[in-house]
Design a protein around this nucleic acid. Structure first.
Lengths: 346, 346
DNA sequence: ATGAAAGCGCTAACAA
DNA sequence: TTGTTAGCGCTTTCAT
């Protein structure tokens, strides 16, 4: 196996200096078109590809950013990771995906910069990390936080407006005639929870009463949890179940639907269900799931762009002003609130 | 911001040479325990982390392998990617995940080694690439193919025994009393399809007749496709539907269940359904889905280990004998074949 | 068992 | 506009 072509080989082939080749590769100005063409031809001919290790070493950058998500097999995060991958590639970054499995240690290690190698930036999607941890952080690696928590302007934060999105979802239930709306996935005492706040705002705006016993917390974002809590709610309200349920995630909503069907209630005929996240399965479920769809692609692009800007600020010694960036979202209306999925029996 | 510590700094701190530090870091032999301890202490004290770009440059390796999957938001591949990530990390590899979106061009480019940089290895999970493309391949990058296709010993291939697994799934249907078993997801004329072959073997072994019109092809692995084909099958057999359906993937099975429920048939009471892949949704669906669960972790480990071995062979100039490696699988029995998910109405 | 120095492939000063 | 050269941080002969 012969050795692979280097920049010097291209230079020799094109009869120019390495600097010129480098200029062409990096799209610098002040290279005459014919020179550019000549170098390009040489590159093609010998099949040259830059060695990124060498480039990054010379540039003093890692060429890599880390993305920390709870788990890749959770569909919301898988889809998000896919988008981050694409956005990062456009900035010549490889993405090191790290799964935290909800382990706060992993997330704190990431915040502290404990990776197998230096990272140019870090995108962290976490439920666990709060403002306190952020305040104590000393590592200077550019950081973007994702997710619905509020970080009080301590770090760059990219998310949709969860309060407004939740309000939109609940408003849709009200618009379609529902009056007895439960929430699964939050504790009634958690005043900070954005999706709970949106739920409350919608109820208040419609003059509907709020019942603390119709707000059920979950211990984790699992279908089983949704199912358990819904079953409990049904058991506590025999004969007078809610006519709609707003779930903090699609995954929980699937469990809720399961509980409803198990108890002989039809969705949406008896009880309408709305989820949150727009996971792919929502389209294949029975009934298909009405949900809030965050613009994941925009979230990914904003996060990567911010890392880019932070890194530039860091190297140029200028300052970077952190902000709360909001991506858009959409209400996707499907069968679980409006459709009837059961046709007459053949 | 002060510069980050280098190997030389550790050496200075510990009062030894760089070579010694390097020996400790790379776990070489012939380092006295006390010397090791001293160096370790110095590493901790100044918070040293090796620069992988420099290491890889010196070693002449990329430090990176590519994983090409159709899409990260398909749960099977997301879970697989997660496992590959972990296995690769243990071999000091970062994984560049590339989504092909089923585009054969992307897969062919990958085979040809067209990446932004050199890769130490390539794991390709593809439906499109066949023996022909493999035979034409000239790139020498270590390669492992995943998936159910047969590559005739042309490349290292890691998969479960799809014929046996399919037979196991169908046998389970037969064992639970089903006699009229359809298959969704393959063409009756596709003699090569492993899961179809397993289906046929099971029917034959049980002395059950095979009906070509009960074998329905799909155009893509989508719930919608399963739903459409199942609806068609029901329309073609009014009054005498199958009593069980074997689906080539879970994703298709979810659509099939949807079609059955839409037509007023109960799962599993009227029709039992088995899927394939064990995607996370299967546990949250209603009813929960009986399926074949491949040992993804083993698949990932085997693939990475093979890349390691191939790379070693390549650098030492020895030869690497490709093989067909088989990972294990399990039949996961859930409600869609045995349970009754609808309790009496309250 | 440990030290000195060359070199991996690239970028960016600095010169021309 | 293009060429020359000194590193980037690490591994690895080759001495010792």
């Amino acid at each position: 196996m012969t050795t692979r072509p280097r920049l010097a080989d291209v230079a020799a082939r094109a009869g120019v200096s390495m600097k010129t080749v480098s200029n062409v590769i990096n799209d610098f100005e002040h290279v005459s078109p014919q020179m550019r063409a000549r170098v390009q031809a040489a590159i093609e001919e010998i099949g040259y590809r830059p060695n990124l290790s060498a480039r990054n070493l010379a540039l003093g950058r890692a060429g890599m950013i880390a993305l920390v998500v709870p788990q890749l097999d959770m569909p919301y995060f898988a889809a998000l990771a896919g988008q981050v991958l694409e956005a990062a590639a456009r900035s010549n970054w490889v993405v090191l995906i790290q799964q935290s499995a909800g382990d706060p240690t992993v997330e704190r290690d990431a915040l502290a910069g404990h990776f197998p190698q230096r990272m140019d930036g870090l995108i962290l999607s976490s439920q666990r990390i709060g403002p306190a941890e952020l305040r104590e952080r000393t590592d200077r690696t550019p950081l973007v936080m994702l997710g619905e928590r509020n970080y009080q302007g301590l770090v760059q934060h990219v998310a949709i407006d969860n309060v407004a999105a939740a309000q939109t979802a609940v408003q849709h239930l009200i618009d379609t005639g529902r009056q007895r709306i439960a929430l699964i996935g939050s504790s009634p005492t958690d005043r900070r929870h954005p999706r709970l706040r949106g739920y409350r705002q919608a109820l208040r705006a419609a003059g509907l009463p709020e019942r603390a016993d119709w707000i059920k917390p979950i211990r984790s974002n699992l279908g089983e949890e949704g199912e358990r809590q819904m079953a409990e709610l049904l058991a506590e309200n025999p004969g007078s179940p809610p006519d709609a349920v707003f779930c903090v995630t699609d995954w929980v909503a699937l469990g809720v639907i399961r509980a409803l069907q198990t108890h002989g209630l039809r969705v949406p005929d008896d009880v309408a269900v709305v989820g949150f996240d727009d996971i792919p399965y929502g389209r294949a479920a029975t009934p298909t799931l009405t949900t809030i769809s965050p613009d994941r692609s925009a979230i990914a692009r904003m996060a990567v762009a911010s890392l880019d800007a932070q890194l530039t600020a860091l190297t140029t010694g200028t300052s970077y002003q952190v902000s709360d960036q909001q991506a858009s979202y959409q209400l996707i209306i499907r069968e679980s609130t409006t459709g009837s999925h059961t046709k007459s029996i053949q």
